[in-house]
Structure formats: structure tokens, C-alpha cells
Amino acid sequence: MSQSRTTIGRRVLLAAAISATCALTPAGLANAAPVAQVHARQAAYTVDSAELGQGLYQVAYSARNNVLWVTSSVGFPPVTQSQLLKVDPRTLTVKAAYTPPVTDAATGAREAVYGVAVDDEHNTVWTTNTVDNSLAVYSQSTGEHLASLPGVEHARDVVVDARRNLAWATGLMDGSVVAFDTRTYREKRRIKVAGAAPAGLAVDERTGTVYAADLTNGQLIEVSASSDQPRLIPAGKGSIDVSLSADGLTAYTANQGSGTVSVIDLQAGTVRREIATGAGALAVATDHCTGNVFVANRVSGTTTVVDPRRGTVVADLATGANTDHVVMVRGTAYVVDKAAAGAQAMDSIHRIRTTG
């Protein structure tokens, strides 16, 4: 009886915490200045868009500073044009831009940034420097480049477990999932799965369990806080990104190969259902306010809103050619594309909000 009451109590507290969080919005958003354009309304959603720069890749949000961090890198190695952008979530304008250091004086190549995650506990930003097989750490206050961390082959994604002072990254080319100490920047753990290509990451901070989407094998790589023996869970064809439900019991994978999102029961280790979203599903994020899932579809140039419990599509919103990444911020989605539109071939950021 006491165990049942404890379990119920925990669920009630969790529900209350989620409800309180969802009642908030990024600071000042309700009184935000108008952005460049409002170009789409569908179902109960409005999409605001603004051009940011060239070569956008990923976006992350800092609650501590109420800013978005966006990575941009242009062209192929040697990459000479790259910036870490500090963006106002209210106006969708660039507040500051920081340029990564030069790594090769002869070619002008820079430590180009691609993946991004925020560590609000230590007021830093972590990036993956894919072509340099490394990670980097920047100060959120000043944009100062604090450290370069080599040894992650084709570093693709990074996620921060603030409770355990860990930053996890994926090595796409050698099947590795690597953890670094967010205080000392030293490597703490390294797990390899032969024949895997780990890409997108998610972490359950309550348990410390990390999930990496395996692009090659259509599965999730689950790494617990207590074991270096990973558990492999079926996902979808070309699973490239992963997000978790609010309670951490369900995972959602964006499946690039099939243009779908998989709904995965993590306890059972099975796929409950697979829902069509759009060609080239590339990134996924969970709205913990509603339970809906947002999927960025690169080829179709849309962001699809899915109700994973019913297995239905709620909305399919235009978010620019080559829609690349999505992050959720208390019920609001921010999406970046690689549309290369306009006279200066600019890429855009899109803000998706409910109108109800």
C-alpha cells in the first residue's frame, strides 16, 4: 500500500512540475517585438520566421540566459566560415556572433561548429566540431572559446546531463558514445558499439541513462549510468535522432530512411507504432506540455506535429527547404533550416507556437 501511494505521489508531483513549467514561456515572449514575417497558420499553430545567416545546423536553448544558441558552418573542408550565434528568442535576431578559432593557418580552416548543447549549470555552450573530430566549449557570457576536446571521430551530436556534470557526444564513424566532465573537460566514459553509427542523443537526467539513435542499424543504443554494456532497442529505418517523453518511459526516433517517427516503449524494448511525417525525417523534439512530438523533415521542408498516443498527425508546417533541426522550449518549437533563400542565400529560424 505504501509503495503504491509513493508511486502515485511521485506521478502527481511530476505532473504538477510539468504543468507549472508549461505555464511559462521564454521571458518576454508575450510582449515580443514583431519578427520578419508570420508565414503560416495551420490547426492551432503559428509559424514566425526570420533569416539568420548561412549554413545553419542546430539550435539549443539557455533558460539561464533566455537565449538560443545556433551553429553555422558553410561549405566543405577546409571550412573557413563558421559561427556560433546568440539569438533572441523573442525577436529572432542575432544578439552576438562568435567565430571559432583557426586550426590551419595555411588554408584558413576553422574549428567549425555543428551540433550544440547548453550547460546552464556552468554557463557554457558545447559544440561538436565534426570535421575536426572534436568538441569545443564556449562561455555563454563572453563567447570565449574555453576548450577543444579531441578524439571523437566525426563528432555528431552533444547533450548535457547537468545533474551528473556530464556532456555526452556521439562519434558517428566509430560507433562511440563518449562522456566528458563538464567541470574539468576530461573524458569520463567511452562506450563503443561495433558497426554502429550513433547520431542524435537524448538523456534522462533522473536516471542518467543516455540514448543514441543508430543511423546504420535502425536502433537505439541505451547506455545506463551503472553499466558500460549497452542495451540495443529496435527503432526505425535510418533512425537519426531521438527524444524522450516527459516521464522518460517512451522514446521517439526520427527515421531518415522511412520518413517516419517511431514510438518506442523503453521498458519493453519494442516499437509501439510508426507514424509517417515527411521525407528525410532528421530531428525530433518532445513538447512536454502536450505530449506531442515535433519532427523536422529535411527533404519535404516541413515540421510535422504528431500526437504519439493516437498515432495521428496534428499539423504539417512549412519550415523552409532542408529543415534541419528542432528544439522545444516550454511549449514553443524553434526550427532551423538550410534553405539558402534570398539574395544572400540565407538560412532561417522558425518559431512554432500554439494559437489556442
Rank of each mutant, 00 (worst) to 15 (best):
A254W: 03
T323V: 08
D157M: 04
Y57I: 02
D120K: 01
S72H: 06
V271S: 02
A162E: 11
N133F: 14
R190S: 12
A44N: 15
V87Q: 04
Y138M: 00
Q219Y: 09
R272L: 12
S62P: 09
Q219E: 15
V314I: 14
Q219A: 15
A285I: 04
G195P: 03
V306C: 08
E153M: 08
Q256S: 11
S134L: 10
A268R: 15
V79C: 00
A341C: 01
P198D: 08
A33Q: 12
A339Q: 15
L14P: 01
A341S: 13
A321F: 07
K192V: 15
T107K: 11
H288Q: 11
A225R: 12
Q3M: 10
T302Q: 11
P26S: 06
A43E: 13
A20H: 14
F180K: 05
Y185L: 05
G53W: 04
G257V: 05
A17H: 09
V261T: 13
D214I: 05
A60P: 00
G143W: 12
V313F: 08
T103H: 03
G171L: 07
R10F: 01
A44K: 14
N292A: 12
R353Y: 00
A169R: 09
E187I: 04
G9C: 05
S348L: 02
T7N: 11
I233Y: 05
G238V: 09
V125Y: 00
R163E: 04
G75N: 06
A212S: 08
A225F: 13
A285S: 15
F294N: 02
N65Y: 00
N217E: 13
R164H: 12
P308G: 03
L85R: 02
T170E: 07
V305S: 04
L52C: 03
A105Y: 09
T128W: 14
P34H: 08
G269Y: 02
V118N: 00
S258W: 01
T107A: 05
A106Q: 11
V116Y: 11
E144K: 12
P308M: 09
S243V: 05
S262I: 09
A27Y: 10
G257M: 07
N297R: 10
N31C: 03
T277A: 06
G238Y: 08
V203E: 11
R64V: 00
A341T: 12
I221F: 11
T130H: 05
L172P: 00
A17N: 09
V335Y: 14
G28F: 04
T7K: 14
E274A: 11
G301V: 14
I233A: 09
R10D: 12
A155R: 12
A50P: 03
A179G: 03
Y57W: 13
A40V: 13
L84M: 06
I264R: 06
K192L: 06
G218F: 04
Y98D: 00
M328W: 02
T107N: 07
G238M: 08
Q54I: 02
R310P: 01
E274Y: 01
L146H: 01
Y45S: 10
A281M: 02
